[in-house]
């Protein structure tokens, strides 16, 4: 009886596990449409701390954020990179569409300084993104960051180890990142709006939104730089 079942499911009192509340949260599109669909507000949330727990450093946790950072760099605010594990490589950032004049790197000597700098940046309200790589942090430190993010309405990301996944956290969005068959796996550990938490498989080399933007730029320029231009065009054809 599909029609009877269908009409039963129309009852507003029934909530299905794979649905999540669609809420109008201020957010920034991630550049990955699969991920946008699963995040409440349809993107990285502003005004809260997001916790990204990676199995190992360097598996693609920064690539996941690059399309959003490229968008944010078009605005006035700073992109703060606090205590990054290695040197953020300027030519690569520029190649991915990030305006370097917005990027600020702050190196610290202790986690105390890292968390302090993160808190100040979130609270200041003129940083469009704050990314911090503390070596270790606790719930109390994260709660302070969460308050600061709420106050400044900023987009803040704290990177941590997957061992933290079992611990409780005040961060409203928590993702666990892993790598299987050369693809980045994104497991949503916690989000606003609840529902069943899916695992996504993303190809961080080909963010959807960012690539289209990049292609448009090349088309406008009328095919510069021979080989590179052609390669980008062929990808865009594939998507279209």
């Amino acid at each position: 009886m599909p029609s009877a079942l269908h009409s039963l499911l129309q009852n507003p009192a029934i909530w299905r596990g794979n649905e999540q509340a669609r809420v109008a949260l201020p957010s920034i599109p991630t550049g990955f449409s699969e991920l946008d669909r699963e995040l409440p507000g349809g993107g990285w949330p502003r005004g809260v701390i997001s916790e990204l727990l990676a199995e190992r450093s360097g598996i693609g946790e920064l690539s996941l954020l690059i399309p959003a950072l490229a968008q944010l760099s078009q605005q006035d605010g700073w992109l703060m990179l606090i205590a990054p594990p290695w040197i953020p490589y300027a030519p690569a950032l520029a190649a991915r569409g990030i305006r370097l004049s917005r990027v600020i790197v702050a190196n610290t000597v202790s986690d105390k300084d890292t968390l302090w700098a993160a808190e100040q940046s979130l609270r200041a309200g003129n940083c469009s993104a704050m990314l911090a790589w503390p070596a270790a942090f606790n719930e109390h430190g994260l709660r302070r960051l969460q308050f600061a993010a709420e106050e400044g309405g900023s987009f803040g990301v704290v990177f941590g180890e997957t061992s933290r996944a079992a611990l409780s956290s005040p961060a409203p969005l928590r993702l666990r990142l892993g790598m299987r068959q050369d693809k980045l796996s994104v497991k949503i550990l916690k989000r606003r709006g609840s529902g069943v938490m899916p695992t996504l498989w993303l190809d961080t080399d080909k963010p959807h939104g960012a690539m289209l933007q990049h292609t448009a730029k090349i088309l406008n320029h009328g095919g510069h730089g021979g080989k590179a231009g052609k390669a980008d065009l062929s990808i865009s054809m594939g998507v279209a």
Partner: peptide, 23 residues
């Protein structure tokens, strides 16, 4: 291929080399 600058004084450039995000 990169330089540290005073905060906010970097020139906006673009590049099409395939380079890693971390060095």
């Amino acid at each position: 291929a990169f330089r540290k600058t005073l905060p906010g004084h970097a020139r906006d450039t673009s590049s099409d080399l395939h380079r890693p995000l971390w060095l």
